[in-house]
Nucleic acid binder design. Structure first.
Lengths: 164, 164
DNA sequence: TTTTAATCTAATTAT
DNA sequence: ATAATTAGATTAAT
């Protein structure tokens, strides 16, 4: 077989990428129009009607449409990376010092931890989101606690009013 | 040299990442407390502020902190990738067929075009944003055109009213 | 179920 | 003009 594609997530390549690269990538430069029955609506219909990410049960991928995040032929999402404890320890230690590592630090970490640079990038993005979430929740608890104390204070004052 | 760090954008590492990885990453696991003067009062800044990038009105960043996207020691952003015409041609051809390439297609393209997979991912994100932008603008023009035609029609009708 | 890696949008920054 | 980064929301794997 010419194509050594690995079907990792159970999705089968319907159209070979070589078809696109070989035919469209080269012929299209010469103004050659290809017959692409699935592309008749390419620029029009799919503004964002289909964007909001439902369609879990893929209808057969012929026809429509390869223009939504969920029904994408040829490969699903990247398999979840399982960081080791020591990798997380290092990342957390760096995060203590720098929450926005630049490209050089990310590359350095990637080399040091044997990870891809963009895994580092994603890790820091998710780590910042986690921090913001925890800060929001702790602020919320502060407010709730303050309100609760206010309530107690009001009840105390009412008690005093009654006793007076 | 032990360190093969490439100063791509003219940024110099001030604190070696090895300090963090070597000291914090290993000793911290044994409960060893480190003296980290920059964690309190960062005596660093002279080197940080001549970084290549921003800091338009940077107030003295002593004290705090490396926790903002702009004052990040050790590296700025990734240098802008300059895609070749033929790379863009292929990416555009694929985009015609699939606006949401999964991991397999992205990896395939990365290998084929000699790019990192993450550059492919980013390219498609930006390309979708461009498409949405252009669709929004074209819809806006449609509405504007419709309004203009309505205006003309109204004027015609008024003309008829006057002539009658 | 909970946590978090991965993906997406939208806005922005910066080359 | 567009590559890179961010926050934020969501999806999905563990």
């Amino acid at each position: 077989m010419a194509s050594a594609v690995v079907p990792a997530a159970g999705n089968l390549p319907v159209f070979s990428i070589e078809r696109i690269l070989g035919l469209e990538g080269k012929l299209a430069e010469r103004g050659v129009k290809l017959h692409r029955p699935w592309d008749q609506t390419a620029e029009v219909q799919s503004d964002e009607e289909n964007k909001s990410c439902q369609q879990r049960h893929d209808q057969h991928p012929s026809r429509l449409s390869f223009h939504s995040p969920t029904s994408s032929w040829y490969g699903g999402r990247r398999p979840r990376t399982a960081f080791t404890d020591s990798q997380v320890n290092v990342l957390e230690a760096v995060f203590q010092v720098n929450r926005y590592p630049g490209i050089q630090l990310r590359e350095h970490l990637a080399g040091r931890l044997d990870l891809d640079e963009d895994r580092i990038q994603i890790w820091f993005q998710n780590r910042r989101a986690k921090l913001r979430r925890s800060l929001r929740e702790s602020r919320l608890r502060m407010v709730q606690s303050a309100v609760a104390h206010l309530g107690m204070k009001v009840r105390e004052d009412l008690q005093v009013d009654v006793e007076e």
